[in-house]
Amino acid sequence: MNGSSKKRILIIDDAALIRTYYRSALEVRGFIVEEALNGLEGLEKVLLQSFDLAIVDVNMPQMDGITFLLELRSKQLPVSGVPVLVISTEAGIQDLAAARRAGANYYLVKPIKQEVLAEYAAVFCGAPQ
């Protein structure tokens, strides 16, 4: 991957520890990482900048991940077409279903290992072999 085509990822999670954990996993793999503390801030960021992937928590203050997804998908293209990976502590099938109904492209359960996260990010960004 050359410098001009670095992939940009937005992390939306209210826990600073989780954001740092994701960020360090992603940055060593060459991704450019932006952070948002909740869905509202996340929405502001996606409207202003372009991203290759958003990694979103479900349970957040002000605007949760599901509302974020619904809002995001209702915007104009290309903003609404950002792939979203939901990572939540909830492991139930109904949580997965709710995220998918709202427009999530994939759902993973916390805790997630850094290598696994980086791998998923690479898959979603189509990092070439």
Binding site: R73, K75, L77, S80, G81, P83, G103, G126, A127
Partner: peptide, 21 residues
């Protein structure tokens, strides 16, 4: 049906990138 275009575009991007990967 809400946000259909966003769903389409994101699913298209996610699928294409996965295959590219």
């Amino acid at each position: 049906l809400g946000g259909l275009l966003g769903r389409l575009a994101s699913a298209g991007r996610a699928s294409a990138n996965t295959l590219r990967y």
